[in-house]
Amino acid sequence: MTKVLLIDDDVELVNLIREYLVQEGFDVECAHDGETGIIYAETLSPSLIVLDVMMPKLNGIEVLRRIRASSNVPVLMLTAKGDDEHRIVGLELGADDYVPKPCTPRELIARIRAILRRIVPVTEQTQAQINVGPLALWPERRLVEWEGQPINLTSTEFNLLEVLVRQAGRVVSKSDLSTLGLGRPLSRFDRTIDVHLSSIRQKLGTLADGRQCIQTVYRMGYQLIKE
C-alpha cells in the first residue's frame, strides 16, 4: 500500500482526510505538529507527505526545509487561500505542489494521485537514456546528470524537466507543462511552473556560450535548447 504522511495540527481535518485516503486504499500516518512530522518523515519512509503551512511552534515552511535537507520525498503543501508568499517560498524550498485551504478530500486525493502517477514509470518509453547536449536523463531511474555530474531534483522538478527534454528544441507552453508535469490544468496567476523552472536552472549548469539551457520564450512558454 502507498503510504501517505499527513502533517497538520487541525485534528478534525486530518481525521477526515485520513478516512478518505484509507477508503481509497492508502496507508496513512498522521502527525499533529511539525517536530513529530519530521521524525515520521525520517523513520516511516512515506511515499508522499501532505504538509500544512500554518502550524504553531514549527510551521510547515521550516518542516519542509528540514525534510528537504535529507529527502526528496514528494511534498504537497496545504496553504491558506490567497497566501501567495508562503506558497512561493514552499515551492522554492522544494514543495512539489500545493492545495489552497479549504479544500475537499476529493480534490486533495486527485492531487496526490497526480503526483504519484508521475513518479512511477508506466511505459517502455521511459526506460531509455535521453541526452540533450551536456544533459543526460534516465526516466525509469529518475536520474539526471549534467556533464557527468548527478543533479538532485525533486520529483516535480524531474517531471517538468523530462517534459522539456522530450520536446527539446521546441517551445512548450506553461499550460502543457502544468498538465504533463503537475498533472493538473494551469490556474490563472499560478506561478508554480515559473518557480520550479527557476530552481531547475539554478541546479543545472550553463552551456558553453554562457546561456541557460532552459530559455523563457515570451508569451509562449519554455524551451530546452538543443545543441
Rank of each mutant, 00 (worst) to 15 (best):
M220P: 00
G205F: 11
A41N: 00
Y98A: 11
I49Y: 06
S71E: 13
E42N: 14
V217F: 02
Y40T: 06
C103G: 04
P100Y: 08
C30Y: 05
V120L: 02
L108Q: 09
E145P: 09
L78I: 07
P134H: 06
I119G: 11
G82L: 08
V63Q: 03
Q167A: 15
I38Y: 04
A80C: 10
T2G: 00
D83K: 08
V163A: 12
D52S: 09
D96M: 01
G210E: 02
L76G: 04
L164N: 07
D84Y: 07
L197K: 10
A168K: 05
G94N: 02
K226M: 01
T216P: 00
D27R: 11
D9E: 08
K57A: 14
E12T: 13
S198T: 11
P74N: 12
L21E: 05
R211F: 01
N152D: 14
S70H: 15
V53H: 08
V28E: 01
V132I: 11
R201T: 03
T156F: 00
R201G: 02
V172S: 05
I214K: 04
I49T: 10
H196R: 08
N59A: 06
L13S: 04
P102C: 11
V99R: 01
E145F: 14
I88P: 04
Y218C: 03
N152T: 06
L177E: 09
I225G: 13
L207T: 05
E19I: 10
Q215H: 12
R65G: 03
G148I: 00
I38H: 02
V89L: 12
V99E: 03
Y218W: 12
M220F: 10
L93W: 09
R68Y: 09
M54Q: 05
I67E: 05
P121I: 01
E42W: 06
D33H: 03
S47D: 15
P185W: 07
S198D: 13
P150F: 10
L197C: 05
P102K: 14
L161G: 06
E42V: 05
G94R: 06
L58N: 15
R18F: 02
G181L: 15
L108T: 13
L160Y: 10
